[in-house]
Design a binder for these strands. Sequence first.
DNA 1: CTGTTAGCGCATTCAA
DNA 2: TTGAATGCGCTAACAG
Lengths: 351, 351
Amino acid sequence: MAATIRDIKKVTGLSLATISKYLNGGNLLPENREKIERAIEELHYEVNEMARGLVTSQSKTVGVVVFDIANVFVCTVLQYLGDGLRAAGYAAMICDSHNDPLQEADNIRFLMGKQVDGLIVLPVAQTSDFLNPPIRAGIPVVLLDRSLGDSRVDCVKVDNQTAAAEALRLLVEYGHRRIAIIGSDTVITGKERLEGCFQLLKEMNLAVPPEYLKLGNHSIEHGYQSMWELLRLRKPPTAVFLGNFEIILGAVMAVNESEFRCPADLSIVGFDDLIVSNLSNPRLSVVVQPLRSMADETVRLLLRRIEDIRNAGSNPDAEQEPHMELSLRAQIVEGGSIAHIKCSGRAVNSN
Amino acid sequence: MAATIRDIKKVTGLSLATISKYLNGGNLLPENREKIERAIEELHYEVNEMARGLVTSQSKTVGVVVFDIANVFVCTVLQYLGDGLRAAGYAAMICDSHNDPLQEADNIRFLMGKQVDGLIVLPVAQTSDFLNPPIRAGIPVVLLDRSLGDSRVDCVKVDNQTAAAEALRLLVEYGHRRIAIIGSDTVITGKERLEGCFQLLKEMNLAVPPEYLKLGNHSIEHGYQSMWELLRLRKPPTAVFLGNFEIILGAVMAVNESEFRCPADLSIVGFDDLIVSNLSNPRLSVVVQPLRSMADETVRLLLRRIEDIRNAGSNPDAEQEPHMELSLRAQIVEGGSIAHIKCSGRAVNSN
DNA sequence: CTGTTAGCGCATTCAA
DNA sequence: TTGAATGCGCTAACAG
């Protein structure tokens, strides 16, 4: 059905090699070049990447395995990843793990069968065993968002601990002492953020009373429920740290439904902000992850590895560059959701 | 690097054909079967789908082109599509069009180069010209969510017009007369929903005053701004129809920030509901699109076409089945966001 | 049930 | 600069 270079050969009278050279950017006579271009136009010829891949043993394809494709954070990252990959001529085969380690491992196998040149993984598993097959097969892997402490792969993430600590520091600097935390201890990123919170509080000689500490998963429900519980406390907190986007969304809805106003009655600082802060009134003060940079770095690292492997083909005992963990700094963007506090009581200035 | 069937041949002493037959589920002596299985285990052998594809001219891959991958509706659909495709052994190559027709056309070309067996498109273009290349190449295309009125491709969508009309009918039946509409006229689905609204209002001999009609795009901002404008009106509406998910999100946040309570002061019915309604209080009454079914039907249609083409290979002048447009019914799920109204004034019963 | 052979569409030697 | 020949890893006849 589709035209091949043999068809072009028939039309132009040139040889396969010449045509192939044209396709791969070689030098040839302008006259021949034109002939080929006309034939391509006529025949609607397109390179068969499968055949090309068989020869070059490169599929120009990378597998992207995500813990949950319906997650807003994931979608956004996926967009940037796709852009970067595409710009380099790579197609992304995206597989959803549904937050299930078994499906994750299966996705890896599946994609290996599809001959992906590399793998980008936003992992759900807590250990890196599931990466053995690609590593053994020599397929480069870059972990994104969540590190697994495996030195055999590269990893790009955000310094969650420091970022969370700085967010809390902000609250303390504004004078807050009764600080609540709604976070998650079910995934590594959530744990790191909690760690950062605790560390700063300790440094400041502050403590979180148990009723101010709401641990759960990264879900809207958790944020919504927990916030209501906090607001109904006899002595509610004056400020609250929200551990991720879903929690923010749920918590902000709870606040809006309540009598409490932000920041007069309750100050808020959040982690991740994909939607809410731009239109909530006042704008939220949030830790913003550099999603674009994370994606770009991930793609850059992966493509470099792929390149290296390609070159190592001719150079058998080439030195393998050591793997790295890139920890990017998140940025705090101040909105108006934190009020200044005098003593330990009411808000004084809503900034 | 990776093992091939020739390696298995060396280890087992069997011929390529036998091994190939094993891989494709043929019958062979249990003894040989075991030998092969052991060799596969040992060598970590995996079929090279690229080589297989070159022979069968099937990549077991489909391209999915979406208007905006960061969109929540899209993500959800993508999840279901991925599941269905995967179950059939197909990988999904997902490309984002960034709501740009040019990128959309480019995505199609790109994916054709990758030898996809079929294409699923959530289109941004208003005409179907960009589908000429795949159609000419004999690559089946299924449109999803948005129809383009092209009889050369299949299409799966929701009956937006009827669904919107029924949503409005609900408001009218509850006694509402002062009904506002926040919708979109920039995309086809939005237009269809508006069409449905107008049609029903006409049928009911009602009209929407200009200040009650808020047209814009499908964005949170539009929902938020428009809702505030409505609420600030000297004579605000008693009920409002919200045209899609983003609009709902923005509008609900506006209402929550205001003095208005739902449904006592304002009744709400919305279209699409991916997040909000489960936790807003009261739960929203919404038109729910059968996303799972839409995805399943899309995959089913596409795979059937691919199958047909495969079989037609041997049967040159096989009858091409006519293309179809599947219009699924959306369902109205009632929450508690619509109040009964007596006369034309205040809410009477919050249901 | 098994083996032999040919070829999918292309890139890449090596000669010319 | 161009052309002829070879093989990437696999499937699909066909013959045994």
